[in-house]
Design a protein around this nucleic acid. Structure first.
Length: 194
DNA sequence: AAGCGGATCGTCT
DNA sequence: GACGATCCGCTTG
């Protein structure tokens, strides 16, 4: 029997990004948009190791864009890339340590019809095409720069991460996608749900 | 089935 | 003024 979904506390995000990333697999992200709840379960995530990681946005030091990563853990870091897409991250590690995790894929749970509409898809819904990919999941959940720097530990936040007791069947680690530095580190984590 | 390039703009040099 | 933690559609084989 699955407990009622409960927001993950700030302490959850205090660990190293590798640990936080692994532990976030199988957790729920709920986006409240115009009074409707859009929910997905995290199936793919990457860890970015801040000042120690040339692939991290924070590697170059603090700027206006990456400032959230330098703040306390458990906040959303949203950025715009390639002139087309938004990507969703969560800050982790203690304040001052600019680590983060990039959400790469969700299994849609709630609000599939709205997700399909936001994605511009028509016809029969293929759940696989809704939230698989960092740009896609932001489009499906209506996440833009307006959703940067939200506290995802608060139940009433428009963006919140919940634990419903689900645990992934298995987890594998692979190199990260789409980066040009530190390409070999196994910091991408993919869950098998079941 | 896999590879190419276009779209499109915020962010930093 | 260049480029990117991407996606999609069109091409080719």
């Amino acid at each position: 029997m699955t407990p009622r979904p409960k927001p993950l506390p700030r302490s959850f995000y205090l660990d190293s990004p590798e640990i936080v990333a692994r532990n976030l697999l199988g957790k729920l992200i709920t986006r409240t948009l115009n009074g409707e709840r859009l929910t997905g379960r995290i199936t793919e995530i990457e860890a970015y190791l801040g000042l120690n990681d040339p692939a991290s946005h924070s590697f170059i030091g603090k700027t206006a864009r990456n400032a959230v990563l330098f703040g306390p853990p458990g906040f959303s870091y949203v950025y715009f890339i390639y002139g087309m897409h938004y990507c969703l991250n969560f800050s982790c590690g203690p304040a001052g340590e600019p680590d983060g995790v990039l959400i790469r894929s969700l299994q849609p749970v709630e609000g599939l019809a709205t997700m399909a509409r936001l994605r511009g898809l028509s016809g029969p819904i293929n759940p696989k095409l809704l939230c698989s990919g960092p740009g896609r999941l932001c489009q499906a959940m209506g996440i833009t720069l307006a959703e940067n720097n939200l506290d995802v530990t608060r139940a009433k936040s428009p963006l919140c991460v919940l634990d419903d007791g689900f645990r992934p069947a298995s987890i594998k680690a692979t190199p990260r996608i789409g980066i040009s530095k530190a390409v070999d580190l196994p910091l991408r984590f993919v869950a098998t749900l079941d």
